[in-house]
C-alpha cells in the first residue's frame, strides 16, 4: 500500500515536471506593487523563523538545566 502511494506520487511528480507553470505562492502578493510585496515577504520570513526560535530557546533552556543538574550530581 505504502509502495503504491510512493509510486503514484513519483509518477504524478514526474508528469507534472514535464509541464511547468509559474504559480503565485501567496495570493495576497499577486499584482501588488513592489514595496507591499517586499513587506509581506519579510513579514512571512520573520514569522516563519519564530516557531523554530521559540522551540529552540525553550528546548535549549530545558536541556541546559538538565545538563547542569547532572553535572552537579556528579560533583
Amino acid at each position: 500500500m505504502f509502495r503504491q502511494i510512493v509510486l503514484w506520487v513519483l509518477v504524478i511528480g514526474f508528469v507534472g515536471s514535464l509541464f511547468p507553470i509559474v504559480v503565485d505562492a501567496c495570493p495576497n502578493c499577486k499584482n501588488l506593487d513592489e514595496p507591499i510585496a517586499r513587506g509581506f515577504n519579510w513579514s512571512i520570513l520573520f514569522m516563519m523563523a519564530m516557531p523554530f526560535t521559540v522551540v529552540g530557546v525553550i528546548g535549549g533552556s530545558i536541556f541546559y538545566q538538565f545538563q547542569r543538574a547532572n553535572r552537579n550530581l556528579k560533583v
Partner: peptide, 15 residues
C-alpha cells in the same frame, strides 16, 4: 512576532 510582522508589512509597504 505577529505584531512585529504586521509592523514590517506596513513599514516596508510604505516608502
Amino acid at each position: 512576532a505577529g505584531l512585529i510582522g504586521t509592523f514590517l508589512v506596513f513599514r516596508m509597504g510604505n516608502d
